[in-house]
């Protein structure tokens, strides 16, 4: 370090490194390509949950160093990086970042972040030269009853392909916003552990299933061990009753509760025998 190092840089580094020390969770995000206005919005959306700090990559690295963060973590600083400071755990932080992503129209040269599909159906567009442009852009459009309609679902750009100017224009005319705009989380650091975003994706459905399974298995154990709880006493009673009725029925124990079923069953059996004997016996008795 020379004496030429600007004072503001020193201040910036010490400000960042003290924020690093104060925060439970540090995130590194890529903000490349995010327009200033939208970055402002994101900052606002994160307020109370995380602070976003944009600075030069070199300064961020120095600050991480000074704060004593694991060397490993610094490698996630590249392109246009920014730091997130938060006290929310990495999983939730990741979720909040995902939830705050917005869609934007494509511009010429954008890369499709996922397959771009047009859907069959009417459009708001007036018939005219636009029809030819749509077709030229590979969109299956036609005139139907004075409206421009899309004939069928079609993937017009696959994930990873570049979007040309014409298609970008047509997509925006159709109101399709294929571009995802938002902070791109590169990694978080929490309690000395580094998480990459893939590790932070949580399948809530899966947890819900686990909750259900835990509940059911616990009920089963409680019933099977006949250990009564508030939740299972009713079921144990039912099981006792049901099994007793079954036994009574099977063994033809002539008790009122069971006899009813036995009679009903006897009637059914006799009835089905009667019906297999022909109409004579089906219509039966009393004459």
């Amino acid at each position: 370090m020379t004496e030429n190092v600007a004072e503001w840089k020193k201040n910036e580094v010490s400000e960042i490194s003290s924020k690093i020390r104060e925060s439970d969770v540090i995130g590194i995000v890529d903000i490349e390509g995010i327009p200033a206005r939208q970055l402002q919005e994101m900052r606002a959306n994160l307020r109370g949950k995380a602070d976003l700090k944009v600075s030069r990559n070199t300064l961020l690295r120095i600050a991480l160093n000074e704060a004593g963060v694991d060397e490993e973590f610094k490698k996630y600083i590249k392109d246009q990086a920014a730091l997130l400071f938060s006290d929310i755990n990495s999983f939730e932080l990741n979720r909040i970042i995902e939830e705050n992503k917005t869609r934007a129209p494509a511009s010429a040269g954008d890369i499709a972040p996922s397959d771009i599909e047009v859907e069959e159906g009417p459009t708001q567009l007036q018939p005219g030269p636009v029809l030819g442009d749509l077709q030229k852009a590979g969109i299956p459009a036609e005139i139907d009853g004075g409206d421009v309609v899309i004939k069928e679902n079609k993937v017009v750009k696959e994930e990873g392909e570049e979007i040309d100017a014409l298609l970008a224009d047509m997509l925006s005319k159709l109101g399709i916003e294929p571009i995802e705009v938002g902070l791109e989380l590169k990694a978080t650091q929490e309690d000395g552990v580094i998480f990459e975003p893939e590790a932070l994706e949580i399948d809530e459905e899966e947890y819900r299933d686990k909750v259900v399974r835990a509940y059911q298995d616990t009920l089963k154990l409680s019933i099977e061990a006949s250990y009564p709880t508030e939740e299972t006493i009713g079921k144990l009673i039912q099981k006792a009753k049901t099994d007793s009725v079954k036994l009574g029925y099977e063994a033809e124990v002539l008790e009122p509760d069971i006899l009813k079923d036995i009679i009903s069953d006897a009637k059914k059996k006799a009835g089905s025998l009667a019906s297999s004997l022909g109409s004579d016996f089906e219509t039966n008795e009393n004459e």
Partner: peptide, 23 residues
């Protein structure tokens, strides 16, 4: 007589069971 003759060739067990399952 009609009963006996109708029963001829009927497997009662089967007739009963068919009742239990489908009917």
């Amino acid at each position: 007589k009609a009963l006996i003759s109708a029963l001829d060739g009927v497997d009662i067990e089967e007739a009963i069971e068919s009742a239990e399952i489908a009917p």
